[in-house]
Write a protein that binds this DNA or RNA. Structure first.
Lengths: 202, 202
DNA sequence: ACGGCTATTGGACCAAAGGACAGTTTCGGG
DNA sequence: CCCGAAACTGTCCTTTGGTCCAATAGCCGT
């Protein structure tokens, strides 16, 4: 058993060239890259066999270029094939939780190449004591009727539906909705929904 | 208690402006970004208080540029402040395991800007994406581009904004949005947001 | 009684959203 | 090489959403 599998006692090894029909949703697939074939090619072959299961690539000689191409091809993790068992377990945890495992160096590389105009953190700390008003406070600014309308809007109802539901005119609904927008400082009903639903109303 | 904390019963909330002396090594710090101050500034203030503990930023309106700058400033995760509790737990798991949490869209962006000559092999991602939303099955019906648009719509962007952001015509955005509506069986963008963000329709 | 807040409605106007047609192009698989 | 899926763009049109100008009526506290 290869070293990089020792960390995972329950892991199964598929015979070379075999096609696996159904993989449990939780399956993690490790791709041990060889040093001869193009990495993307190896991945493509693997994909044919395993479908869309998350793949973690293990390279003998980690390289940013290689990592880059693999990530863009859908790989969820990339690390040194000779990493310690504990590290590999960590990678597995991250990927299994739906995350990406990216080496620190590669991350820096990615960020660096994307910066066009990003100032180097001027950190001019102006006290931000007062300006932070989580929308919890703002919701209490609403009148009873406005709150009622706001919730219904956030639930996905159209103005017309709300009007019918509340027994008032669509015009009036618009008035309430408009008032809510102002008080909560949102520009449209979708943003209202994000705020209201993120606030966990009862 | 804010929604994004409900997922973590043992979480502690520090009083505004307080300086925390010692944080356990396992501590995770959530930074809820407001809509007014520069994200980097908010992070800087937080850093003064908590030192080097891993920080996950929560944004009301996720934006690639913002995410980029935060990651380069050392943030370990970045996601929608209105994400479902389950998603947040997942983010926490990934970061606590030492990983980075990067949205699919941002990942694509990073890769795209770094590509020099990488056109072989199709990008066949789309399966495991940013969230384990309850409607993950339906979301998997979407094409890559549709998913990208759907997420942005659900984040509160207008068609015009999305068009500018993706470098395509507003007309094309409408086409994608329309296709998403059909596939997810929703009637408008607000319902789409509810589905994507993991709420239930009323 | 008066001012202020709430709820209601009207009309007009413009921007955004969404549907209904119809197209071109690119690219991978059979 | 052809087919189909995906991405993309166009025009025309209707419906909805959102903001501006108003106005009327009830309620509450000083």
């Amino acid at each position: 058993m290869p070293r990089w599998l020792e960390a995972f006692p329950t892991a199964k090894i598929a015979p070379a060239g075999s096609t696996i029909q159904r993989l449990p949703a939780s399956a993690l697939v490790w791709l041990r890259l060889d040093d001869v074939h193009p990495a993307l090619e190896q991945l493509a072959v693997l994909r044919k066999a395993i479908g869309t299961s998350p793949v973690i690539a293990l390279s003998n000689h980690p390289d940013n270029e290689e990592a880059l191409s693999l990530f863009s091809a859908g790989v969820r993790g990339y690390c040194n094939a000779h990493a310690a068992a504990a590290n590999l377990r960590q990678v597995a945890n991250v990927v299994q939780a739906g995350g990406l495992w990216i080496g620190e160096a590669l991350m820096q590389r990615l960020l660096a190449s994307t910066q066009t105009a990003m100032s180097r953190i001027p950190v001019s700390v102006s006290a931000m004591d007062e300006g932070v008003s989580p929308s919890a406070e703002r919701l209490s600014l609403l009148t009873k009727r406005e709150l009622e309308v706001a919730r219904t809007v956030a639930g996905g109802s159209s103005n017309k539906e709300i009007a019918r539901q509340l027994g008032i005119t669509e015009r009036t609904v618009k008035a309430h909705v408009g008032a809510v927008f102002q008080k909560l400082k949102v520009r449209d009903r979708l943003h209202l929904a994000l705020v209201v639903n993120g606030q966990r109303l009862t």
